[in-house]
Design a protein around this nucleic acid. Sequence first.
DNA 1: AGGCGTTATGTACAAACGTACATTCTTTGT
DNA 2: ACAAAGAATGTACGTTTGTACATAACGCCT
Lengths: 181, 181
Amino acid sequence: MSVRRHDPNRRRRLIEVALDVIAEHGVAATTHRKVAEAADVPLGSLTYHFKGLDDLFAAAFTKLADDTADGFEAALAGAHGRDGAREAVVGLIAGELLGERRNILLTYELYALAARRPDLRRVTDTWMARSRAALERHFDPATTVMLDALIEGLSIHRALALEPMSVETVRDAVNRIVTPQ
Amino acid sequence: MSVRRHDPNRRRRLIEVALDVIAEHGVAATTHRKVAEAADVPLGSLTYHFKGLDDLFAAAFTKLADDTADGFEAALAGAHGRDGAREAVVGLIAGELLGERRNILLTYELYALAARRPDLRRVTDTWMARSRAALERHFDPATTVMLDALIEGLSIHRALALEPMSVETVRDAVNRIVTPQ
DNA sequence: AGGCGTTATGTACAAACGTACATTCTTTGT
DNA sequence: ACAAAGAATGTACGTTTGTACATAACGCCT
């Protein structure tokens, strides 16, 4: 904590560091001081850039949701044909965007928080709406709803399960949902 | 907070009240004092029955996992034939055990906590193992893994989605996973 | 160059927290 | 009936927390 006057986009950096701290310690144990130390800024810097802890959490989780939805849309926008879309979904579940432990963990924290905070609830609602819209470019509405839920469940179970789930199993599950009866 | 000496199974009651407090305020905002007030017992009663807050959380989430796994097993044990098992699964997702907002919420909190605490991680592992074993009495191993994930995703999305998902959609999704290719 | 608005810093403080513990009451076993 | 063991209570204390705020430094515009 030396002299570090003039740190442009410190606010942006604080938001990213806050997500790291939340991923490591959980919302329950995330404090102004922990984030300040992790970002190597004085405590007062946090109260300057954010109205309070709630404001910091809101900014952090908004970034998480936006980034994830961006990646989701990009992956599906780059897919062509039904097979391409299916493989894109498999790649998302198995890849780092939805599959990485850190993101799954942060998602839990967001869900838990959003259940009690309307402003964060709006964040999750927007996120889900964007995901569904991206899927609906390739699949019919009914399939989209089911696929959306399957993606959620597979991501969680892949990250949490004791024995890792193979990509083949993921692909098989996606196929069962997508393949018309 | 009058005279209430001699309160057998107060410990059990405190665990249940703790789950209520966690569901309402989240783990992050659950304190000894909040639980004590909700249960109408003095503060000291909590430090007497539990070694600390962590111990209380562990007891509460263990009960949640055990109760849910019990209900899950019972529903599937009472099902006969493949159609019966399928309908049991649909009923579980749409019913109160997995579908109720409170339980979904508590599950998030548990997942978020279990990611960082080995003792609670063991609780979720056992829960998942019991669920999978109950499903495997009716379905082949591959289908069981996929169905398990689908149940998770559908439960979450049903509780969180803006527009409620119909039971027919749930049944359709289960059928797509279960029906052999 | 110089002033002004913005950004950065360190400290201070009240409130809330987890936990320990001495004391009091109740049940249980003999 | 009485003693021992267990359960229940209230208080007290040290720590951590969120947040406010006075002060200082910096970038930018004229």
